[in-house]
Amino acid sequence: MVAGVFFDGRSAQRHDVTLSLDGAQLYLRGAGCERRDAVSVLRISAPLGRTPRLIRYADGAVCEVRDAAGFDALLESQGQGRWLHRAESSARIVVASLLLVAALIAAGLYWGVPLAANGVAAEMPASLVRQFSRQTLDVLDHQWLQPSTLPSSRQDALRVAAQRLRSAEGSPLAFKLVFRASKTMGPNAFALPDGTIVLLDELVALADNDDELMAVVAHELGHVRHRHGLRLMAQGAAVGLLATWWFGDVSTLLATAPTVLAQAHYSREFETEADDDAVRTLRASGIAPECLATLLRKLAVTQKGRESQGFGGLLDSHPALLARARRVDGEVSAGR
């Protein structure tokens, strides 16, 4: 005999009842009510935490039982989804689930996000890429950049020199070279996803010859070819989305921090990819690939003691620039 509270489904009146099993029938009895129903037609709720177990009758009546042990003894193995309750209340399974969830999220961040970002970046229509690039340059012009002070003859000479650049397969490359100056960004260059490459006066001044500048252009073209800018954007959005989903219940504020951290990591990978691309491009264009390493070392000197400013350009922290220069040297000697 198990105690329960019965509601007939027609009023909110409580009936204290006792339940017992009579063959294949459940016998319910209390003050002013008595019924006998085949167990097979009852809908019996699966256990869920320490919440009351519910027996639902076909006519809308319901019986609540708080005595979990008594209920299980009476109607053992009734109610689907018992395995869920067993998993939820087993310390071992809960800890295992926790580790699995952590592993899945880590895998998602490490492989899933870049993969999804690649897909999005590859599928982005050209018109949208152009529009986005134009907007980005507008924002940069507005906030960080000033018009270039290079004479137009020098600009044109560099544009002509850049015509020499060939892809690793030997075909001409489509891009647009523009010049700007910046008081805040120092010697730098960056690529917009539509193939617009921005060279800053400070970088032109830093280079000893045009080949070094061509190495920079080749590097930036690597970013364009691999759609790094778009991928970075998509990755940022994806990580932000994940973080919002994870922390969403508490505050979206907490959700922004991981995005920033993740981006810093990804851009390092992109630089290496662009450097490798630049070495191939320079070689195909008949320019000594060592120029890239030379320029990276010069940049490292100017960057010494400065904080990285987090733009997608050449700018990087001092040790990272030196490491990249060493890597380029390695690529150059390996390809010889």
């Binding site: 935490g49 939820e88 809960v94 689930s97 699995l100 969830v101 899945l104 999220i105």
Partner: peptide, 21 residues
């Protein structure tokens, strides 16, 4: 409200795992 954090943690993490997989 009679729920407990420890109990809900089990439900939450199993839900999360099943949703992810």
């Amino acid at each position: 409200f009679n729920g407990s954090g420890r109990e809900y943690f089990g439900i939450w993490i199993v839900n999360l795992l099943l949703t992810l997989v």
